[in-house]
Simulated scan of single mutants.
Amino acid sequence: MKEIALLGIRGVPAQHGGFETFAEKLSLYLIEKGWKVTVYCQESGKGEIYESIWNGVNRVHIPVPFSGSFGTVIFDWKSIVHSLNQSGLLLTLGYNTACFNLLQRMKSQVNLINMDGIEWRREKWGIVARIWFWLNERFGCWFGSHLIADHPKIKEHLSTRVKTEKITMIPYGGDEVCNADASLLDEYNLVPGQFSVIIARPEPENSFLQMVRSFSRKQRNHKLVVLGNFDIERNSYHRSVIDSASDEVIFPGAIYDTATVQSLRFYARFYFHGHRVGGTNPSLVEALGAGCAVIAHDNHFNRWVAGPDAAYFRDEADFCEILDRLLPAEDIALKMRAASRTRFKDRFTWEQVLGEYEELLTHWYPTK
């Protein structure tokens, strides 16, 4: 039986984001294929490391008495030390603490690292954090047995650090949503097709302020639903976004109920995607899977994912012009929705993505 341990995430079942969702999908997929799967899980508090079984996945629970980034670093360190006794293959999701992966390299363990996005370019980080991520990106390139890029441009970027042969490109995947419960919109007084949606972390590099401010320049007779955690007391950027919004913009907070989020995507006129940094963004893939008509920031990351039939904006004025032109054009929105589904089926189904991962993992599985 082949064995694999997954590191770098908070654990399964998924509760925190894209990498956790991927880890859950991959773990269950590999178990069905006869693999033994271990996932390291971060717990709050003190105590000894313990194990449990969830849907056939062996979970190694590591209590950490700290929160935030420091707690994550401690968790990663303890996970990596514990993993030195694991047999088989390692898969690390993210490179944020790749300096610790030297231990696995020294023990000649096979460790594949998914290098995620270019974290050190994100505007939200200060100089110390950027240097930390910049260094760990290089450590990941050096210490990983093989690298996985989730976007052709990420592979191109990593190729400036290591030989191209050391990198395999496999994108993120998503579920296709062919129907959704329209009654879930009632709580927010929304009517199918008469609102658009933004689903992302409200960070400067995700263009929240530009999109909300452009939308709010005039009366649209259309709602904009902005999902995300906003802390206007402690975050000046969050406050600026909310202050710039018209009365047609709704801020329901972060919604974690899958059925509700699927309904918001499925019945939205448009999905606005302002990400300027990163590779294959999970939220954009999920929007394609729900058949959303996409209006995205114009960069090579978004263009490869969403394809040529999405609409792209460069700045606020550009975004405003697109809204003026497309919001009333239901026929164009329908064509864009169909194109999104086609793009999704061509490249981003979980069946494709997980199959490519198993093929790569099998190729790198250590032989005794």
Results as ranks from 00 to 15, higher is better:
Gln210Trp: 11
Tyr188Val: 10
Ala200Met: 00
Gln194His: 12
Glu187Gly: 09
Phe139Arg: 07
Val226Leu: 04
Leu224Ala: 03
Asp181Asn: 14
Ile118His: 07
Val241Lys: 01
Phe208Asp: 00
Arg217Asn: 15
Asn179Thr: 11
Pro252Cys: 01
Trp132Ser: 10
Asn235Pro: 10
Arg239Asp: 13
Gly173His: 02
His238Cys: 12
Trp132Met: 12
Glu233Met: 04
Ser145Ile: 07
Glu203Tyr: 01
Glu187Met: 04
Asp186Cys: 05
Arg138Tyr: 03
Thr168Phe: 03
Gly193Tyr: 06
Arg213Trp: 11
Gly174Met: 11
Glu248Ser: 12
Met211Pro: 13
Met169Glu: 14
Thr164Pro: 07
Ile167Lys: 14
Arg161Thr: 12
Lys218Glu: 14
Thr164Glu: 06
Val128Ala: 11
Ser216Met: 03
Pro202Glu: 00
Val241Gly: 06
Glu203Asp: 12
His238Met: 15
Ser246Gly: 05
Trp120Val: 11
Leu227Arg: 00
Leu185Glu: 06
Leu209Thr: 02
Ser183Thr: 09
Glu123Ser: 15
Arg122Trp: 15
Ser183Val: 14
Leu158Ile: 13
Arg161Glu: 12
Gly144Tyr: 08
Ser246Ile: 13
Lys155Thr: 15
Ala254His: 12
His146Trp: 11
Arg121His: 07
Glu165Thr: 05
Thr160Glu: 09
Lys166Arg: 08
Phe133Arg: 02
Ser145Glu: 03
Arg234Tyr: 07
Trp120His: 14
Pro152Val: 13
Glu165Gly: 04
Ser240Glu: 14
Gly174Val: 03
Phe251Tyr: 03
Asn221Ile: 02
Gln194Thr: 01
Glu123Tyr: 09
Lys124His: 01
Asp150Ala: 05
Thr160Leu: 07
Ser216His: 13
His146Gln: 04
Arg121Gln: 13
Glu119Trp: 02
Arg161His: 15
Asp150Gln: 08
Gly144Asn: 14
Gln219Met: 08
Ile170Phe: 06
Lys163Glu: 05
Ser183Ile: 07
His222Thr: 10
Lys155Asn: 09
His146Arg: 08
Glu165Tyr: 05
His222Asn: 07
Ile199Ala: 04
Phe215Cys: 02
Ile199His: 00
Leu184His: 05
Ser246Met: 06
Asp150Val: 06
Glu248Pro: 01
Glu156Pro: 06
Ile127Lys: 14
Leu184Ile: 00
Gly228Trp: 01
Asp243Arg: 12
Ile232Arg: 07
Lys155Gly: 15
Trp132Leu: 12
Ser246Ala: 13
Ile127Arg: 15
Val212Ala: 01
Glu165Ala: 04
Ala182Glu: 11
Leu135Cys: 11
Ala254Arg: 12
Ser145Ala: 12
Glu203Val: 10
Glu137Thr: 04
His151Gln: 11
Phe133Ile: 15
Val128Ile: 13
Arg122Lys: 14
Phe215Asn: 03
Val225Glu: 08
Phe215Glu: 00
